[in-house]
Amino acid sequence: MTEDLTPQPSRPERPPRRRGSVAVIVLVLAALVAVLAVTLGDATLVFYEVDEAVEQRTELVSSRFRVVGTPLPGLVETRLDGEAAVVFTFCASGVFADVAHVGDPAELFQPGVPVVLQGSWQAGSPPGLAGLSTAANDGWFLRTDHMVVKHDNDYRTDEERTADIDACGVTG
C-alpha cells in the first residue's frame, strides 16, 4: 500500500486550454450588449412626451399609452363618470394638452413637478375646462387613471437647482 489514495489538494482538472474560445465567448457577449443597447434604444418607447402624444394623436387614438409632462398651475377638482377626477393642463416643450385624471392623484403631485400618466385620448372637453387658465382646449383630452411622479436627480441647494427646473412655461 505504497500509493497514496487520499485525495490530493485541488488542482486544475486539466491544463488551461482553448483560451481562444473563451475570448470568442467574451467577444460575443460584448456584442450582445452592444446589440441590445442599439436596438433597444431604437425600439423601446416607454413614454410619449406631451408634444409627441399630441402630434401622433391619430395613430394613438383608441390605444392606451404612457405620457410624460409637467402639470401647469390651476388644478380643477371635479367628477368624471361619477368618479373623483382632477383636471389640469399638461405641458412638454411648449405643447399643451388637457388631462382629466380619474382616481387619487399621487401624494407628491403638484403643478410644476413632472408626472407620468397612463391612459388614452378622448374626444370632447373634460369637465371643469372653464376653470383652467392655460387650457389647450383643442377638442381632445387625455383621460388617465394611473399617475407616477417623475422625480429628478437634483439634490443641490435651492439657489443652484431651481435654475435647472424645467419650467415649461409654468409662470404662475
Partner: peptide
Amino acid sequence: DVRIHPSTGQEIGQ
C-alpha cells in the same frame, strides 16, 4: 429634500 419651486412657490422634493 425640500426646495421651493421657482414659479409656483410650493415646496417640492422627496
